[in-house]
Computed example of a mutant assay.
Amino acid sequence: MTLPAAKNIAVGAQSAGTSIGNHPVLGPLALVLPAGRWTAIVGPNGAGKSTLLRVLAGLLHTQGPVTLAGWPLGQWPARERARQLAWLGQTEAGAEDLRAYDVALLGRLPHRAWLAPPSAADHAATRAALEATQVWPLRDRRLGALSGGERQRVLLARLLAVQAPIWLMDEPLAHLDPPHQADWLGVVRAHVAAGGTVVSVLHELGMALQADDLLIVKDGAIAHHGACASADTHRALQAAFDERVSVHQVGDQWVALPEATPRPPARAR
């Protein structure tokens, strides 16, 4: 069974709070993220960014409903849910002995019957994903033998191979050098231009400001949610980092620059 997607809604959460064990990690949520847009989640270390993304992915229990395309996650058949939402976690472990090709091929599992071999369409999607992330030449190497950046691109290829309309990514730029960060940006923009949705946790504020919308998290709460080009968003971003960053326009892009802590005046000798 395939549930009809609600128009213009990707994921959302209505929650009274989220805890890990007895430790509260997120406060109340009333969040709806639109389809067909790229939302970047940013905030100081320990603010709750990754926790929020895990809640939206259904990987962490919260006190209230989480929705996918307007429907509660629990109403989605598991296979169809896996086809709708692709996940890339932070510093994922495992599968070290698998070839890069086989790791990316795992993204096709939601499209295969139980114990069925990969189809021609599965192999075509896997190759396209590895080529899009520029790791096709590494397809026969074990994941554990790759560099951090190469490994990250293989894991990104696994996400692409799912061919899901919604991507949730936690720190997808980890270990990537600037050229490959630019390649990632191109992949994201192409997906959104084709009607897809991206939600990504990012530490790189300059890259986050390339998104459509910014979701700012601080102290376990959503401090601001707005367009990246908005002056209100820029002020909220600076406030979230205690005025230690400033936002500037360079050409047609917004950049965030660190602000040094003022030095105390030198004491007279």
Rank of each mutant, 00 (worst) to 15 (best):
T2R: 13
L3N: 09
L3T: 10
L3D: 09
L3Q: 13
P4W: 05
A5F: 03
A6G: 01
N8K: 12
I9W: 07
A10M: 05
V11C: 08
S15D: 05
S15N: 09
T18N: 08
S19M: 03
I20C: 07
G21I: 03
L26C: 07
G27D: 02
L29G: 01
A30F: 03
A30K: 10
L33C: 08
P34G: 07
V42K: 02
G43A: 03
N45D: 06
A47K: 13
K49Y: 11
S50L: 10
T51V: 08
T51L: 02
L52D: 05
L53G: 01
R54W: 02
R54T: 00
V55Y: 09
V55A: 01
L56T: 03
G58C: 11
L60M: 12
H61K: 13
T62W: 08
G64V: 09
P65N: 04
V66Y: 11
L68E: 07
G70V: 07
A82G: 06
A82Y: 12
A86K: 06
W87L: 14
L88K: 01
E92L: 08
E92Q: 15
R99V: 00
A100I: 04
A100S: 15
Y101C: 01
Y101T: 00
V103S: 00
A104H: 09
A104M: 09
L105H: 08
L106T: 04
G107N: 01
L109G: 00
R112M: 15
L115I: 04
L115E: 10
P117W: 09
P118G: 14
P118K: 06
S119I: 05
A120M: 06
A120G: 10
D122G: 08
A124E: 13
A124T: 15
T126E: 06
T126K: 04
A128Q: 14
A129M: 08
L130Y: 05
L130P: 01
A132W: 03
W136M: 06
R141P: 00
R142P: 02
L143N: 03
A145E: 15
S147H: 11
G149Y: 07
G149Q: 10
E150C: 00
R153T: 12
V154R: 06
A157G: 11
V162W: 02
L168T: 01
L168M: 10
P172Y: 10
L173C: 07
A174T: 13
H175E: 03
H180T: 00
Q181K: 14
A182K: 09
D183E: 10
L185F: 03
R189S: 07
R189H: 15
A190K: 15
H191P: 09
A193L: 09
H203T: 06
E204N: 15
A208F: 04
A211T: 05
I216D: 01
G220F: 11
I222V: 15
I222C: 02
A227N: 14
C228G: 07
A229H: 04
A229D: 15
A231H: 07
T233C: 14
H234P: 02
A236Q: 10
L237I: 09
L237P: 11
A239S: 10
A239T: 12
A239L: 07
A240V: 06
E243S: 06
R244I: 02
S246T: 14
S246C: 09
S246E: 11
Q249F: 00
Q253W: 03
Q253H: 14
L257Y: 05
E259S: 05
T261A: 14
P262E: 01
P265L: 05
R267L: 15
R269N: 11
